[in-house]
Structures are given as structure tokens and as C-alpha cells.
Amino acid sequence: METVSPNRLAWQRFCQNRAALGSGIYLSTLVLVLLVWPLLTAQAPDATSDTQFAAPNGLHWFGTDVHGRDLLTRVVYGARISLLVGAVGAGVSLVIGVLWGAFAGYIGGRCDSVLMRIVDVLYALPSIIFVIVLMTTLQGVFDRLKAAGWSGQGTATLQLLALFAGLGAVSWLTMARIVRGQVLSLRTRPFIEASRALGASHVRILSRHILPNVAGVVIVYLALTVPAVVLYESFLSYLGLGIQPPQASLGSLIAEGATQINPIRVYWWMILCPAGALATTLLALNCLGDGLRDALDPQAGPRRSAD
């Protein structure tokens, strides 16, 4: 009988999970569309027109906003930024979390308890305070740069980088805990001891034996961190701390729509369109994360496909 590698098995399980597979396809198409969108249409996201608050129609599929800007274009550019922030923010949290957790778990002893107490303290500190302080500090730096003659484009990019750093800096705590727990239990396994007896250096043990073994859990948690970061970014943008206008993310578009609620006329498309885009994207990301978890770790959640 042919033996099937664990990776192959995981892939088969993933393909049997229709929701996860569908989400994967949806997300890759979405990313593709978002990437080539500027080539397809010449419409700029901040091009204004005279038709304000037009309901969705043949010309403007998602309607227009207060300045007569096409909402579909705005949502596409907003989704680009939201997804970019989600991916990079999760990446930042991955790097910090894995390094922190791996060092704490591998070195152990006093170093471990100091590192993990720091995580405990940060857990008990409301992350919003952290982000506000970081964002406003950097804002001051940007203002100075602008005064020193930097172009608007440059500072906008820097602001985005600051957002990545801020979001990554508050979302690595759980990752560090998970990795540390895994490394702690791996460290005492016989194959690590054998490798040490053979004279492998610590760096080699960490990079060749421990980290590959943690990878499954890390990938799963990373897939679930992306939607969390997207959500957090939209929350920050809703508060006005994230993406600065005229740039937009899905969160700031929703916030803009929420300010237009009044008893006289309801501009429902200004909320429902960006909210729908956010919800479907998050839905797909979560489905994908769940599917990856079930595929990579069959014990974590016995799923329909397995039984």
C-alpha cells in the first residue's frame, strides 16, 4: 500500500471541506481582482462628481457618497488597504510572537518567567491605550517630517507602516503564549535530546527541529489572526486613528456611512456596501482558518469530513 505523507493527508482533508475550499478560492479571486482593479478602470477612488448620494444604479453599482465619489471604487481601494493591513499586521505579530514564545520556552527558567510575566502585564493593559499612544507619538513625528518638506505620498506610506507596527504590536501576545507552550513540551522530547547529544547548536535545534514542529499550530493561529487584525484596523479607522482621509479602509467607510444616518433620508448603501464587503471577507478568512485548523490538526476538531 502506498503511504501518504501527513502534508498530503492534510491537503486532502482541506479539499474535502467545501466551506474552506470555497473561501480559499473566493479570497484568491478577491486578491486578484483587487490587484488588477486599477488596470481595469481608470476611475480614481477620490474623483468627485456632481451626483451626490445617488442610490445604487447601472453607472454606480454601489451608489455615491457625500462628495459624489463612486462607492464601488472606494470600497475596492478600502478593501485593498484593509487586507494589506490584516496580512502585514498578522505578519508582524507572527514574527514577534514566535521569537518571544520560542525563546521563553526554549531557554526556560528565570528567563521564561520574566518574558511571560511581561506578556501577562501587557494582557492586563487595555490594548487601545497602547495603540493610541503609539499612533499619536508617530503622528507627531510625521507632522514634523511634513513640515520638513516630505511629500504627502511619503508620509501616507509611513502612516500605513505605523499602523502595521501598532496592530502587530498589540496582537502577538496569544501567539507568544501558544508557541511557548508548544516549545516547552517539545524541548524535553527524546529527538531533541538526541540532537543535542549529537552536538547540534541551540540555533540549529531551534531552527531545524523545534520551529518546523510548531509550524502547524502557528499557521492555524496566523490564519485566525488575519481577520482579527482586519477587524481591529476597521475599529481604529472607525475611531479616526487608523487610515487618514482621503485614503479609506472598510472601517472608515462604514464610519462615514454611520454619520449619514438621519430620520429624513436613509442612505443605506453607504453602510451596507462596505459592511457587506467587510463581512464577506472576514467570513471567508474565518472559514479558511477553521478549515486549516481541522486539516492540520485532526485532533483539534473532528469534522464532518473526518467522520
Binding site: P227, L231, S234, F235, Y238, G251, I254, A255, G257, A258, I261, V266, W268, I271, L272, A275, L278, A279, L282, L283, N286, C287
Partner: peptide, 17 residues
């Protein structure tokens, strides 16, 4: 799953509306 994907600042305005 949908409930996890719509944050309070989406649910709130829609409910109000």
C-alpha cells in the same frame, strides 16, 4: 460565524436604521 464577522459598529448603525 456571521455574528463574529460583523463588528458592533456595523450592527449598531444597521439596527438603528
Amino acid at each position: 460565524l456571521l455574528a463574529v464577522c460583523v463588528p458592533a459598529f456595523v450592527v449598531g448603525p444597521i439596527l438603528v436604521m
